[in-house]
Nucleic acid binder design. Structure first.
Length: 426
RNA sequence: GUGGUUGUAGCUCAGUGGUAGAGCGUCAGUUUGUGGUACUGAAUGUCGCGGGUUCAAUUCCCGUCAGCCACCCCA
């Protein structure tokens, strides 16, 4: 048992029942995306490392990205996130794509991190973006989609919240307070975890972390506690547009402490949080990236989007006891094999059912001489196969098949084409 | 990268310095053409791996690997 080669650290195996859950989540994402008119696309899972450089610090790239060298000695990354791929695809064809571009995908990403709750080294992300319009209504649309996703998962505004800010608020604030640009990044890092620090220790902790004057420190406390976004004309318009998304706006609120780590975000940034705090980290995040395609060498195509991962949301749904009971996919019909002699009949019937588009499984396990059906019924039970067809000596003699509904336990003998009709009518 | 914690039957876990247990599941039977329930019975382990201490280690110690959790980080 212990000789089995282990799975790669931080990866997950999706056995059929696990896959069914993943597929359930994917279907929710797809449903919401398509409701807003977004088209599904896909891109490669590997990219040249160059796609990610300049968008992030070299240290993070070196430490957190899985890289490999191809046979021509080019450095390739297993994509650590999906946005640069979209930006690249848009930049390549920006002239011919009809705008606004509304696209979504669901794909794997990799990060070399220490696995823990809601975080692994291999994960899935729902990447959804609107590119083209540099308008607050686009931001409101993405926020509404985020809210609608929660609604589809039966997560309420009492349980989750989408916190939104505008990066220019912080930049303007720093300009006003004469905070040097070199201090801004450390300050962002600090403010990112400010909720973990008790209110009365705040001023001391800020000073400890960054060299700032008392006035500046007090101003920072004032900044993070400010609930008024009117200084951002952009956010004001975003919230105004959001007013028209009746239910969905209840999920969204202003929070000046939201920054996001990605350097490519401009203006709007947001993070979804669990209000109970059990998750201790953002469920997902997103924002506006107006210059990304340009940075990649293309023409400027402004965009806004988000990337919800599968692991945090599944962890959250588990905590709230809102995971559905999903079953692995199964055939609709199990054709039993009464004895070795009757195998040919069962094969023939299976084949005919499939020709009529009925998902059919032929029993290929052990056939006992006495009571040959018992084991086969049990098998159908365990695999949640709703119908069984029995072809025993009696049926062969009469040229009929027995069709049984496993749930109601009703069974009846039919001619094969009648049985097919019966199955198709349900 | 740092720290905590766990690793025993297919699964969930109990246990002990002197040759290993429960529940669930599995298999067989009650039921020779009918499943989920019930009853009866049975099988199953290099006690994660390597080393050390000991007359003796699954148990104690060290290391290692893996899982989980937290920190760090999170573009």
């Amino acid at each position: 048992m212990n000789k089995i080669v282990l799975p790669v650290k931080g990866t997950r195996d999706f056995y059929p029942v696990d896959f069914a859950l993943r597929d359930w989540l994917y279907q929710k994402m797809k449903l919401v995306s398509e409701r807003y008119g977004y088209q599904e696309y896909d891109g490669p899972e590997i990219e040249y490392v160059d796609l990610y450089t300049n968008k992030t610090s070299e240290e993070i790239l070196r430490e957190q990205v899985f890289t490999l060298t191809d046979k021509d000695n080019r450095l390739i990354a297993l994509r650590p996130e999906l946005t640069p791929t979209v930006a690249r695809m848009v930049a390549q064809k920006s002239q011919q794509l009809t705008k606004p571009i509304r696209w979504f995908m669901f794909g794997r990403g990799w990060r070399y991190e220490q696995p823990q709750k809601g975080r692994g080294r291999e994960f899935f992300q729902w990447e959804i973006n609107i590119l083209g319009p540099e308008s607050p209504e686009a931001d409101a649309e993405i926020l509404s989609i985020a809210a609608e996703y929660f609604k589809e998962l039966h997560l309420t505004p009492d349980e989750v919240v989408i916190r939104v800010s505008d990066r220019s608020l912080f930049e303007n604030f720093c300009d006003q307070q004469n905070i040097e640009s070199t201090k801004r990044l450390p300050l962002i890092r600090f403010l990112d975890r400010i909720d973990k620090i008790p209110r009365d220790l705040l001023a001391d902790e800020i000073k400890k972390a960054i060299d700032l004057s008392t006035e500046q420190t007090n101003a920072i406390i004032g900044f993070v506690e400010n609930k008024d976004y009117s200084q951002s004309a952009w956010l004001t318009k975003v919230f105004s547009a959001l007013e028209n998304y009746s239910d969905n706006k209840k999920y969204v609120e202003f929070d000046p402490k939201i920054f996001r780590g990605f350097d490519y975000y401009t203006r709007t940034v947001f993070e979804a949080w669990d209000k109970t705090g059990g998750l201790k980290r953002a469920i997902f995040g997103g924002g506006r990236f107006d210059n990304l395609t340009e940075t990649l060498g293309g023409e400027r195509v402004p965009g806004v989007g988000m990337a919800p991962g599968d692991m945090p949301i599944l962890e959250l749904l588990k905590q709230f006891n809102k995971l559905p009971e999903v079953k692995a996919n199964a055939a609709r019909v199990l054709v039993t094999v009464f004895s070795k002699n009757l195998m040919q009949s069962s094969l023939r019937v299976s084949s005919q059912l499939r020709s009529n588009n009925i998902n059919t499984e032929l029993y290929l396990g052990e056939i006992k001489e006495k009571n040959p059906l018992e084991k086969q019924f049990k098998y159908a039970d365990q695999k949640n196969i709703p119908y069984i067809i029995v072809i025993g000596p009696e049926e062969v003699e009469k040229k009929l098949v027995t069709l049984k509904n496993m749930q109601t336990r009703e069974q009846k003998q039919f001619k094969l084409d009648e049985a097919i009709n019966e199955l198709q009518s349900k």
